[in-house]
């Protein structure tokens, strides 16, 4: 491992400047993500849901809901909770509720 402790806070300032800073585009991307994530979490607090159900309740396109659910599942916030017809039901992990 490198000998001296890295001064990453100073390095980060320079890096941020060099990469063009936190652009409006990046801010908007993050805000949109947080909103849809929050809406999905709120809807799932009422119980397990399928993708079409969540799309209806959150008024979001179903493919976006699908993508965010799979991201939540990958990072351990979500589990499968049975099936309803041709759809899988998803539930918040107990620790996330």
């Amino acid at each position: 491992m490198s000998e001296a402790k890295r001064n990453w806070r100073e390095d980060l300032k320079v890096f941020r400047e060099r990469m063009g800073g936190l652009t409006e585009e990046k801010k908007a991307y993050g805000k949109a993500q947080r909103e849809i994530r929050k809406a999905l979490q709120d809807a799932l607090k009422a119980g397990p849901r399928t993708v079409p159900e969540l799309a209806r309740e959150t008024n979001q396109p179903s493919h976006k809901v699908m993508w965010h659910l799979m991201a939540m599942k990958r990072y351990g916030e979500l589990v499968e909770a049975g099936e309803a017809g041709d759809y899988v039901k998803y539930a918040l992990k107990e620790s996330e509720r």
Binding site: V51, P52, S62, H63, M66, W67, E83, D86, Y87, V88
Partner: peptide, 8 residues
Amino acid sequence: LRPSDGKI
């Protein structure tokens, strides 16, 4: 699953 809505 299919990507549009998670249908099997």
